[in-house]
Every structure is written in structure tokens, then in C-alpha cells.
Design a protein around this nucleic acid. Structure first.
Lengths: 338, 338
DNA sequence: CTGAAAGCGCTTACAG
DNA sequence: CTGAAAGCGCTTACAG
């Protein structure tokens, strides 16, 4: 049966002390005699008393809640394997600091005001953002309003300095492309998404950089833009197979795209990696288990989550002294790469 | 620059009314003259005033926050495609009702008290739970404490009646098995996880029911238990290939397991579906794009999220009058099924 | 339609 | 070490 809700005053009466003393016990203040503390704690336990978080918050500056915002497009692949490990990493760090996570998946186009009110109404101490598009105005609003936030992904080119964590996408794409180059490939294609997302732009840059380093002039016909899905990869590869001088190697900007590309290649009765070698990006769980095993560039997603959470906790205390965190991207060889 | 935090009293003064009137305006009370309302709203806008959610909550019964709890095992495949659509569904419904979601991924073994305090401290109105193991004591605690919750998955055999949403797992497995039987298969194997999770138990039941309907005595050698991963499926299939009279058809309790099984079969130089037909479960995004395309049993995950959220909102008002919701599981034919 | 006042359940100087 | 009291920022009978 439910006992009626008990409050600090009840506990005070029962323990024969003032509410101030009970409050001190709750908050672990040293200014309480051991004897009193024991007595109060006993009553608290006995009556299963839990101080109201909201009432506590009312007299404290922080809420110990961070909003985790994930904007997404209609049709977005929500089964994307990116978020669960990210959330896990964030949770792991914040849990230890008794921080809670308020989750919002918000469909674009969205109204920033709605989500900023989470802060203005005092519900959250700030934001962790993921899947944000290049130069999404939300970041600038947060910045101007002086609201704490951490971005998963370097997404703004306008803000001078802001806290973010990211994978070294340029290096990742550079390494994968370089692998192809060292294997002797000269017709290397890039299958990519639109530049709406910064990581695509960066992977593109890494690809171009590697080509240039080998003195190869990028051929625009070898760079195909499509949606970041299996089907997008399939369509992109179909196009590449039709050009006069098709590529002997393909770097895809995501594993899903790579899987689609593989289907298109096999459908064409070409061999992988003999006729076309292929490398994906992200290193999804399934990569090593498909046929042929898909080489990829690994992101440390859970680690990114952890770093994002750490950075967030850090900027709460020192809003101006922080360093963005870039995590390594590691080329993982598997048979598809040749 | 940050303006100093403004409160209801400031607004009252600026608008030349009492705080009570401002409060009425905020809460859309009809007992305010149009003229006054306009004036107050103007001031509120002008000063970008946002009432403190915590202060409001202090004088209101509900917090408009629900905790979404996901217990998990170390090593659990967090890239599991199950959660993002589930979260999306939950969010979509709750957003409209201005409900927020407090997310907790909690590693087992966990201490229920820690998460129950979210409720006892007045932070959340209740819980939505996913990935809960069969007869997890957490549910019983919530039940006894009279705390509102909805379970994604029918997980308790001890509670008489409690609110849950689930997929019709028995029917799904029954249909898939029946498909095999109608195709003439008589040696049908089941690759499954442990009965820690109720959905495994149910899929097992569906499999057995179908066999019995066709008068086939289940052969224990054809039921293999492994971890719910690609590797688990691989190991399970390896075992099945070694038995004296190997199966001509395999139902796997998850698509990941099915993918592992496919690898084991191909490695053995058997043809799919000619030598062994195979059906997975869940209908992941990739299923139609692997080779051979993987038949599966579709769960309506996003829909489950929506129903879970609706059910939660419902039980807040009528804690005793509700119906658990079972969503259909649909067999999806693809080439692997033969 | 409006306001003064009590109340929600805490924390925290201040005084002793 | 302890308590009385003010304060956090709202809402809501109650009275007019």
C-alpha cells in the first residue's frame, strides 16, 4: 500500500530536530554531530524518505540533467548503429556524476526555441548534440545565448571556438585512399552523401588529399553523391559501372553505402576485390561477417560518447577553457579491400 | 550577453498585475481579461521569460517526465537496431503531450533502488522499460510500490495483469515454421538465445506449436542455444551441420544469428536455400540486401514505441483499466527461405 | 476579472 | 553543532 508522501518536515519532527539539520544530513554537511546524523538517517531509512529533486533544484544552481538532442530527417535510417554506442558512452560517464540524460529525437525542420526552452525553463544544464547538420543555426543560437553545449561532430564553420568531439574523418579517408594507391590503384572512386553533413565533407577532403599526394588529378566523374543508405550506395555504384573508364577501387562514405555498392558490383558479375576493391566507413558490427568481408574505417563511437560527456562536465565549470577532442579513425583491412 | 534571470514577480511588476494573474496567463486560465492577457504576454515575450519548470512542478502533481530504462548485459550488442526506432516511436507520441524522456541505459546487474529513486524523488511520473529479462524483479518492485510503468515486451509471468506492449512472437515463429513445413521440410532447426528473455521463449513456443500441428515430434538435437549475436548464430549452425541428420531448414531467433548461420553454411559449401533454407527474425534494414536476401519475421518496432507511450499516458489516468497491446509479427519472404 | 497570502519541499546564510 | 527564518519561483484556493 502507498504510504502518504513524507517530507523533510515530517522527518525533522520524527527525529526531533529542525529541517535545517535534516537537510544537512541529506547533503552530507560536516556540521552535524555523529549522534544526530545517525538518528536522522535511521528515520529517513525507516520511512523510505526521498528528498524531492525539484524542491532541491529550486534552491540550487544546477539541475544535473543534460539534454541529448538528435535532429533527424524524415526517412533517416534510425536503425543506424551509431546512436546506441554513443548513448552508452555518454551515459556511462554522466551516471557516475549523478547526471541524468533527457533525450530528444527531433524531426527536421525543427524549431530551436522549443528545445532551448528546456534550458530556459531550468530543466537542463545544457546540451549534447549529435547528427547535427553543417552550420545548423541551433549551435549559433546556443552560443549566443551563452548556453553550454557539446557537439558530437565538428559541424560549424562559423563559430570560432566551440566544444566538440569528432572522429578524424580526414585522416580516415586519407588512409583508406592511400591504401588503394599503394596497391597500385589509380582510378579510385568516392561514393558519398551530400555535404549537408560535415563528416562527408571531411571524408571527401581526405580522399582528395591522398590523391594529390600521389600526384593524381581527381576525376569528378569518380565522385558520386547519393543518399547515405544501402540503396544510395547501390545507385551510386551503378552509375560508376557505366562510365567509360570505371574505377578499380571504391571508397564509400559509410558501410551501408558500401553494402549497396557491393550488391551492384556482384549483380554486374564483377569480382570483389579482383575487379573492384571496396572499403566502407564506420566499421559496423556486421562488416566482418558479410561476403566478402568489408574493409572499413573504424570510428570509436562509444569513446566519442564518453569524451562528449566529459567535455560537457568540463565546460560547466570552465566555459572558456577547453579543447575540442578528435578521436582516431582506423583503417581496418578485410578482404574486400584487396 | 546573458540578461539576469527574470522571474514571475518581475513580470508581474512590469505588467502592473499580481503574480497570480501572470500565473493565470501562463497556464491559459480563462479568468483573465483579454486586455490584461495581451499586456502580460507582451511583457513575457519582450523579456523572453520562461517559467521555471521545477517551480511549477513543485505545486503540481505531475512532472511530465517519463524514465526510459534499458538494462543491458556487458557485451550486449548495443548497435542493435532495435532501440532507435523504439525511441523514435516513444518520442513521437510523448512529444505531442509535452512529455520528456529521461533515458537510462543501465548495466546489469543493477540496483533497482537507484532507478526507483527517479520516481521517489519526484523526477519522473513513471517508467517505460525495454530489454527487460524474464521476471526481472524490477517490475515487481514497481508494481508493489504502485509506480506507473509500461514494459516493452511481456516479461513477467508472476504479475497477474500489468501494462505491456509486445510483438506476437509466438505467431511470428509459428508462421515462419509453418512456411517451412508447407514447403515439405521435416527437419527444421531452431537457433535461439537463452530463455532469459521472454521473446526467445515465445519464439520457441511458436516453433514447437507449428511442428506439433503437423504431427512432428520436436527433435531436441535441432534446437540449439547460443548468444544472440552473429557469432552465436555461426557457432550454432556449425553444431547443426555436424549432427547425423542435419536440418534442411533453419529458423533463427534473430537476424544477427541468421547472418552468422549463413556464414557457417556457405563456409561448408552448402547452397542456400537449396541445401538449407533459412529465416531470421526482426527484419533488420540490411536483410533484403545481403546475399542471399534473408527472409525474416518483421516486428513493428516504431509502432511498439508509440503504443508503449500511449499506454503509459493512459495508465497515468486509469491505472487499473488498460489492455496490454500485442502487435503483429509478419513473415517476410526472401530468397533464403526457399 | 483580480490580488494577497499560503503553500509546494527544499537550502542556506545568520545567529547563537 | 543546531534552529528560526528567509528565500527559491511558482500555483491555487479564497475573498472580493
Amino acid at each position: 500500500m502507498k504510504k502518504v508522501k513524507i517530507n523533510i518536515r515530517d522527518i525533522a519532527k520524527l527525529a526531533n530536530v529542525s529541517v535545517a539539520t535534516v537537510s544537512r544530513v541529506i547533503n552530507g554537511s560536516p556540521n552535524v554531530s555523529e549522534k544526530t546524523r545517525k538518528r536522522v538517517l535511521k528515520i529517513i531509512q525507516e520511512y523510505d524518505y526521498h528528498p524531492s529533486a525539484f524542491a532541491q533544484k529550486l534552491s540550487k544552481p544546477r539541475t544535473q540533467i543534460v539534454a541529448f538532442l538528435i535532429p533527424y530527417e524524415r526517412g533517416f535510417i534510425l536503425s543506424d548503429a551509431f546512436f546506441p554506442p554513443l548513448i552508452k558512452g555518454i551515459t556511462e560517464v554522466l551516471d557516475k556524476k549523478e547526471y541524468n540524460i533527457m533525450l530528444s529525437m527531433i524531426e527536421s525542420p525543427y524549431i530551436p526555441e522549443k528545445y532551448i526552452s528546456l534550458y530556459k525553463r531550468g530543466i537542463v544544464d545544457g546540451y549534447i548534440l549529435a547528427n547535427v547538420k553543417r552550420n545548423d543555426p541551433f549551435l549559433e543560437i546556443l552560443y549566443e545565448e551563452n548556453i553550454r553545449f557539446v557537439s558530437v561532430g565538428k559541424v560549424s564553420t562559423k563559430l570560432k571556438k566551440y566544444p566538440y568531439v569528432d572522429t578524424d574523418n580526414i585522416k580516415g579517408a586519407f588512409d583508406a585512399t592511400t591504401y588503394f594507391l599503394e596497391k597500385g590503384h589509380r582510378r579510385i572512386a568516392l561514393i558519398k552523401g551530400t555535404h549537408d553533413y560535415s563528416f562527408i565533407q571531411e571524408r571527401y577532403e581526405g580522399y582528395i588529399l591522398a590523391l594529390k599526394k600521389y600526384g593524381i588529378k581527381p576525376d569528378p566523374k569518380l565522385v558520386v553523391e547519393e543518399s547515405l543508405t544501402i540503396d544510395g550506395g547501390y545507385r551510386a555504384m551503378k552509375k560508376l559501372l557505366k562510365i567509360t573508364n570505371p574505377p578499380s577501387a571504391v571508397l564509400a562514405c559509410s558501410d551501408y553505402m558500401a553494402i549497396g555498392a557491393i550488391n551492384a558490383i556482384l549483380e554486374n558479375n564483377w569480382e570483389i576485390p579482383e575487379d573492384v576493391a571496396i572499403i566502407g566507413f564506420d566499421d559496423l558490427y556486421i562488416d566482418g561477417r558479410i561476403e566478402p568481408p568489408l574493409a572499413s574505417v573504424r570510428q570509436e563511437i562509444e569513446e566519442m560518447g564518453k569524451e562528449a560527456a566529459k567535455l560537457f562536465l568540463h565546460i560547466l565549470d570552465s566555459p572558456t577553457e577547453f579543447e575540442p577532442k578528435i578521436l582516431p579513425a582506423t583503417f581496418i583491412w578485410r578482404r574486400s579491400a584487396g
